[in-house]
Design a protein around this nucleic acid. Structure first.
Length: 735
DNA sequence: GGCATAGCTTTTTTT
DNA sequence: AAGCTATGCC
């Protein structure tokens, strides 16, 4: 029996079709990773393809690692020679070797969005662009979109003739690229675009890689952008052995430049392409799959396919609507704990998915209270944290002092009494003499305008020079420790001794151990190598499997994952679908949200619980939302609607299931205006009074603010601390 | 010239 | 709720 016997016919068709373009339309849970890994195995074992000639592109480093591992298990040997990586890391690898052809130094650094913003802020100042009118982020967004479409600064400028505001943007774009070049840095989009540029300008290099990668596979193809498409087209144009796998229904990265046309028009670009559809789902129960199918059916822009499963019907989907996001979070924590306690899976079998990172806060709070082990993916990326960026900037400066941004970030961290005025003078000197910022620092004595400030700059330069001298003899971890020692970075945090500073120290410890494990594991560890690795990690890459914790993450991060028990939280119009897409004139924006919903539903294997809240705090103010329109698209018979308000809190006579169902499903009943709080004419308590809350117990009223709809009462509870609450909900009783 | 603080604004998703 | 900017103070 061969390893291919256990596959279904479609899957086998995809595996055995090795020559020429191939489009695999793989629905959610249809075993596409399995197909890809078996296809690689088949190429190597049966077709005698040299593993060295295979390139597999995945979406995240985590997916790449998993794929390599799985191929390793299927193939006797050679798996390690297969290139499995993300677009970005593949491009970095190529650029490190050949970027000198484009006039860059091979030691280039990679700018994250934080660095980009700092740089753009600087440019706006210099070009006198009003950042009230054009925010840095907006400009960067426009530049990013241009790069994703392979439109360079020059070309962008040519297209903007006559349009005044666009010309200003073009100017910013040009200056931005110029700055990147002088700093010897690339941003994320550059990694792809510069590689395409490299191939276009250097046919010999392109040909070498075409020969190298005779067989190319691309996973999550629906989320590739134009630049990425061009890249693989170039690579595959010689041998045409391009296999792409994707699901147009799971395209959720349009905002990042993903071009859904890449998958919808694949057959037009490669007329000889074979198309294989994988429509059998092995992951979810019939109920869950039915729900997903009914939701996605409302999209117009999609390839025709219907996912089916031979799995059981399974448990109904549970839908719960709550008064507040607070209760919602509480319910999820309780329900989850109950299920785990009942032996219905482990914590790691559960995932909470939400639309925005901000929603994780409340959930986290409740999980902490309930003592449920959890892990939050996303939010502020580990490597984007201040303390980590500070220390990495030191390492960057030691490694590549052409990166002005890094130098400027740390020159006054820890405080050395060097301020904006001093920096401006150094900057002027650097521009005048066309040298880097750091070299200007080294020559500080020659800047007359500085005066006595020179004395403050000297120790910094000495420090960097010393570290640079040590670099040769130190491992990355040792160098990092040296930085920490010499700057007293951790010592300052220790003195601060707050909860926040302790968390920062923990992060620093984690960074040290990451450096140490890099030193150990890398084939040929270098400082540049470490910095590069660190620049390209996504948060999801660090999701360890052998850890019994609930995962909390955005729907976007959840792509490609599966969990027996999934909670979709915050299913409200305005949250999901987001407000922006509801008011958007472009109806395809809403379709993308629906695809996201489809992705969310199809993550669940056995149990899906959907929750929403009538009110929730957003950016400091309470919002009232209707139940998400996507809920209406799920057939009623698949859903079990739970009680809306927890009986504990609410003492109304129990409503029948029918009335509850009606309430939950009649979206019209949830017009914001209809949600009225009966504002008491007068409260029975005042500031300073002792009151009692059903859950928090006794406390003292600290403040009462009269809002439009209700009184907002601040109470300092003896046990639970200070809470702000609406009088109508709090039901406070005078003690 | 540098540092602390009080108001002011927020695109949701990320390699 | 939180980060950033402008302002005032040392």
């Amino acid at each position: 029996m061969s390893i291919y016997d256990s596959m279904n016919e479609r899957q086998r068709e995809a595996v055995f079709h090795t020559e020429g373009p191939l489009l695999i339309l793989a629905g959610a849970g249809s075993g596409k990773t399995r197909v890809l890994t078996h296809r690689i195995a088949y190429l190597i074992e049966e077709k005698g393809v040299n593993p060295w000639n295979i390139l597999a592109i995945t979406f995240t480093n985590k997916a790449a690692g998993e794929m390599r591992e799985r191929v390793d298990r299927l193939v006797a040997f050679g798996a390690e020679s297969v290139w499995v990586s993300t677009f970005h890391s593949a491009c970095v690898r190529i650029l490190r070797r050949h970027i000198d052809r484009l006039g860059y130094d091979s030691k280039f650094t990679i700018y994250d969005s934080d660095d980009q913003k700092t740089l753009m802020k600087d440019i706006c100042k210099r070009l006198q662009i009003d950042t009230k009118q054009w925010k840095e982020k907006t400009l960067l967004g426009i530049i990013s979109s241009a790069k994703n479409e392979l439109i360079g600064a020059q070309e962008y400028e040519m297209n903007t003739m006559g349009d005044f505001s666009k010309r200003k943007i073009a100017e910013a774009y040009k200056e931005y690229q110029r700055q990147l070049r002088t700093n010897n840095a690339l941003d994320f989009d550059d990694l792809i675009m510069k590689t395409v540029e490299l191939f276009k300008l250097n046919p010999d290099v392109l040909e070498a890689y075409q020969e190298r990668f005779k067989y190319i596979m691309v996973d999550e193809y629906q989320d590739t952008n134009t630049a990425q498409f061009k890249l693989i087209s170039l690579l595959a144009s010689k041998y045409q052995n391009l296999c792409v796998v994707g699901d147009d229904d799971q395209s959720i990265y349009k905002f990042r430049g993903a071009n859904i046309r890449n998958i919808l028009n694949f057959e037009d670009v490669f007329p000889s392409a074979r198309v294989v559809k994988l429509e059998q789902n092995y992951r979810s129960t019939k109920t869950i799959l039915d729900a997903a199918n009914h939701v996605i059916r409302n999209n117009l822009e999609r390839k025709n396919k219907t996912l089916w499963t031979a799995n059981d019907g399974g448990a109904p989907i549970i839908f719960q609507n709550f008064m507040t996001a607070y209760e919602e979070a509480e319910y999820i924590a309780e329900d989850l704990a109950k299920r785990v306690a009942a032996g219905d899976g482990n914590y790691s079998d559960c995932a909470i998915l939400y639309r925005t990172n901000a929603q994780s806060r409340l959930l986290e709070e409740k999980f902490l209270l309930a003592n449920i082990p959890y892990r939050i993916i996303g939010g502020v990326n580990f490597y984007a944290r201040k303390e980590i960026k500070d220390l990495l900037s030191y390492l960057k400066t030691v490694d590549n002092a052409r990166d002005d941004l890094a130098v400027r970030r740390i020159i006054n961290v820890p405080r050395r009494g060097i301020g904006a005025a001093t920096l401006a003078k150094v900057q002027d000197f650097a521009v005048e003499n066309e040298i880097s910022f750091y070299n200007a620092l080294r020559a500080a004595e020659e800047i007359p305008a500085l005066g006595r400030s020179v004395a403050k700059l000297k120790p910094f330069v000495t420090l960097i020079q010393t570290l640079r001298a040590q670099q040769e003899y130190f491992s990355v971890a040792e160098l990092l420790k040296e930085v920490i020692d010499r700057t007293d970075y951790v010592k300052e945090l220790e003195d601060e001794n707050t909860e926040e500073s302790r968390a920062r120290i923990e992060n620093i410890d984690e960074l040290i151990s990451k450096a140490a494990s890099y030193d150990e594991e890398a084939e040929n560890p270098t400082l540049s190598g470490f910095l590069e690795e660190v620049a390209l990690v996504a948060d999801i890459d660090n999701l360890e499997e052998n850890n019994d914790r609930v995962v909390l993450m955005t729907l976007h991060s959840a792509k490609g994952l599966e969990f027996p028990n999934v909670y979709l939280a915050g299913m409200e119009d305005g949250i999901f679908p987001s407000y922006m897409t509801i008011v958007s004139e472009d109806p395809t924006d809403l379709e993308e949200e629906r695809r996201l919903c489809y992705v969310g539903i199809t993550r669940a294997m056995r149990q899906l619980t959907i929750t929403s809240a009538r009110s929730r705090m957003i950016r400091g103010e309470t919002q009232y939302n209707k139940v998400s329109r996507f809920i209406q698209e799920i057939p009623r018979e698949l859903v079990q609607v739970g009680s809306m308000i927890k009986p504990k809190v609410q003492e109304l006579p129990k409503q029948t299931a029918y009335i509850q169902a009606k309430q939950a499903f009649q979206a019209k009943a949830f017009e914001p205006k209809q949600y009225k709080v009966t504002k008491a004419d007068k409260l029975e308590y005042g500031v300073g009074d002792r009151v009692k809350h059903i859950k928090f117990g006794a406390g003292t009223v600290e403040n009462i603010v009269e809002g439009g709809k209700d009184y907002e009462v601040t109470v300092n509870f003896d046990r639970a601390g200070v809470k702000k609450m609406f009088a109508a909900f709090a039901k406070l009783k005078r003690e």
